[in-house]
Design a protein around this nucleic acid. Structure first.
Length: 622
DNA sequence: GTTAGGG
DNA sequence: CCCTAAC
């Protein structure tokens, strides 16, 4: 047994690694569910050989069963759309094939039991548990604990756990999990179950109800967290929670899922977990763990409904998940929503979740993984770009999600409304106008995260871009040159944004300012449309409102600054472009001239600088 | 559609 | 820059 186990373990590890590689390569490329499935399938395919070898050495029966299952899977694999079908069929095949070999599994179980009888320790239990579907859960649970304390080697941990699982379960991990989940538990005595319970929940139980214990244990193992009320709040990022909730109920579902990916299951899952952990480790290990556990179970949440309900109530007591801020908030949100319509929503959600959430999680995970490994692929993973928002790129829908998830991952603490802001600030420029953000938040509470992010991105873009093109003209005081540039940009920008989004921020160039001033001098302040038409003919992107605003700003600047006059030519640091004092002076002068009916304000003073203007305005004025 | 103001 | 009210 041991020898075999070792061999298997090794094998398992190898498999895992190979899978990991496959996973790694595939994952980045595949963002869609389909892709995901495919890749899983591929993994399975690739894996079989190793497993087979093991199986052969060990049990021919198992081998055959596995092969069958694999074949089945392979046949089924291509049908993306029929994922569920695939799962079911696979599970069925597994059941059929597995039942005969069941002896093997049963053997395992027996062995485990024997060992248990002797040892009875929690550890022993844990090891034995792997046989059932619980195993995964248990491992995850362990993982969780470990991770909690030591975040160091998530991936490794996952692998090891997997290996251990394979060890106990031997060749056909997935199989028994599917088939035996219940069986194994059944075999346990009440006492054993109680032990298991203790191991799982860390507390004794006097309950002698086998069913209850089983259920409880299964639940506990499968779900690290227990959510009293299972609802899905589909927050932008938060699908996870949903999953977790759903997950809780289903030992069965889980088994099915596993069945779905028999050979590959081990490897793939663990690897995934590892990835997640690594990614997630940055913030919330627990959550990640949960997620990982859930992923598996999720696909078939529907079946468990009955169980769910029972389980939920019962096992809400057990292991409480640390109340993360985010978690709490979500929960609260849930509750509120829940009140409206619980059951119906639940159903809906379950279905909903099935479809969408998975991808999501995956995406998240991917993003995490990539963040570490594939820094280069920023584009594909919108989230990651946050740091490096280059951007002339058009944003696509996808990135957003990732981005959000990513954001969450980084800032687990900041939730709901808060969570949006902090990340943005952290990752992006601070000098962006806070106003906009706030305002948007106000208007679009639900969408806040996305919008704000988008805006941010844009802002970042804006900030960077201007420098390269227009600014140069400004800085160098080549006023004339600026004109040409602007036109191009102007057109491009709006188009990209497409929507009613914020106009691309264009810093006012000196030339523009000059033109504006001239225009005002010529036509007078307030005739913005005219000024725009005549003086800004070349600057299509400047609207009359823009002119007005700019003028206002100029005025303000001039008023505040003029007094000091000669201080520094480019005094305004905060301003995008330093406005030369002379211009400010001119502005002020113009303002004065227009504003008052006839009061002269020391026109003589300025004659030197803006004599021309003064004259003009003066003449007009007079 | 413009302008003026506030945000 | 955005938004809105008032022209």
């Amino acid at each position: 047994m041991e020898a075999i186990v070792d061999a298997e373990v090794n094998e398992g590890k190898n498999d895992v690694e190979s899978e990991v590689e496959g996973d790694g390569t595939l994952v980045p490329a595949t963002e869609d569910d389909v892709m995901q499935f495919e890749h899983l399938l591929e993994d399975e395919k690739s894996e079989p050989p190793s497993v087979e070898g093991l199986a052969q050495s060990k049990n021919t029966e198992l081998e055959s069963t596995k092969l069958d299952t694999r074949l089945e899977y392979a046949s089924v694999t291509l049908e993306k759309v029929k994922q569920e079908e695939k799962l079911q069929s696979s599970s069925e095949s597994l059941d059929l094939s597995a039942n005969p070999p069941g002896d093997q599994t049963s053997d395992c179980a027996n062995n485990a039991q024997e060992q248990k009888n002797e040892l009875q320790s929690e550890n022993a239990l844990m090891e034995t548990t792997p046989i059932s579907t619980i195993l995964n859960g248990s491992h995850s649970g362990e993982m969780e604990k470990e991770n909690m304390e030591t975040c160091a080697e998530p991936a490794n941990e996952a692998v090891t756990s997997i290996s251990s699982v394979s060890k106990t379960c031997i060749s056909s991990m997935p199989d028994f999990s599917l088939i035996k989940g219940e069986v194994c538990l059944d075999k346990f005595t009440i006492r054993e179950l109680q032990e298991a319970f203790r191991a799982t929940f860390g507390r004794q139980t006097s309950v002698k109800d086998k069913l209850w214990l089983k259920r409880r244990i299964a639940m506990g193992l499968t779900n690290s967290c227990d959510v009293p009320s299972s609802h899905f709040v589909i927050k932008d990022n938060q699908i996870v929670h949903e999953e977790a909730k759903e997950e809780t109920p289903c030992s069965v579902s889980r088994s099915k899922v596993e069945a779905g990916s028999p050979s590959g299951d081990q490897g793939t899952e663990p690897t995934k977990d590892g990835c997640q952990d690594s990614a997630a480790s940055s913030y919330d290990h627990i959550k990640d763990l949960e997620l990982s556990g859930k992923r598996l179970s999720r696909p078939t949440d529907e079946y468990d409904e009955t169980k769910e309900n029972l389980g939920m109530e019962e096992y809400s007591v057990k292991r409480m998940r640390k109340p993360t801020r985010r978690y709490i908030e979500e929960l609260s949100d849930f509750e509120t929503q829940e009140c409206v319509a619980r059951v119906p929503i639940f159903r809906k959600n379950s279905g909903h979740v099935l479809a969408s959430p998975k991808p999501w999680i995956r995406s998240v995970r991917e993003s995490g993984a990539q963040s570490t490994t594939y820094s280069t692929r920023q584009d594909s993973i919108g989230g990651f770009n946050v740091r490096v928002p280059y951007v002339s790129r058009v944003r696509r829908g996808r990135p957003r999600k990732n981005f959000m998830t990513l954001m969450q991952s980084f800032h687990p603490s900041g939730m709901a409304s808060n969570f949006v802001k902090p990340p943005l600030e952290i990752f992006l420029r601070q000098n962006v106008e806070s106003r906009n953000k706030i305002r948007k938040a106000r208007s679009l509470p639900m969408r806040i995260p996305q919008l704000s992010i988008v805006d941010k991105k844009r802002d970042t873009e804006n900030a960077q871009k201007p420098d390269s093109e227009e600014e140069s003209c400004m800085d160098t005081f080549k006023f004339d040159t600026a004109e040409e540039n602007t036109n191009d940009n102007a057109d491009a920008r709006p188009a990209l944004k497409g929507g009613p989004k914020r106009k691309h921020h264009r810093a006012w160039t000196l030339c523009e300012v000059l033109k504006l001033v001239e225009g005002v001098a010529k036509f007078g302040a307030g005739r913005w449309s005219e000024i725009r038409r005549l003086a800004f003919a070349s600057y299509s992107y400047r609207t009359s409102v823009d002119l007005k605003d700019k003028w206002r700003n100029l005025l303000r600047a001039s008023l505040s600054q003029v007094p000091n006059e000669k201080e520094d030519k480019f005094s305004r640091k905060h301003t995008s472009i330093p406005i030369p004092t002379p211009i400010l002076l001119r502005v002020r002068e113009l303002a004065e001239m227009h504003s008052q009916t006839g009061i002269e304000i020391k026109p003589s003073k300025f004659s030197g600088h803006s004599g021309k203007i003064v004259q003009g305005s003066g003449s007009g004025f007079l």
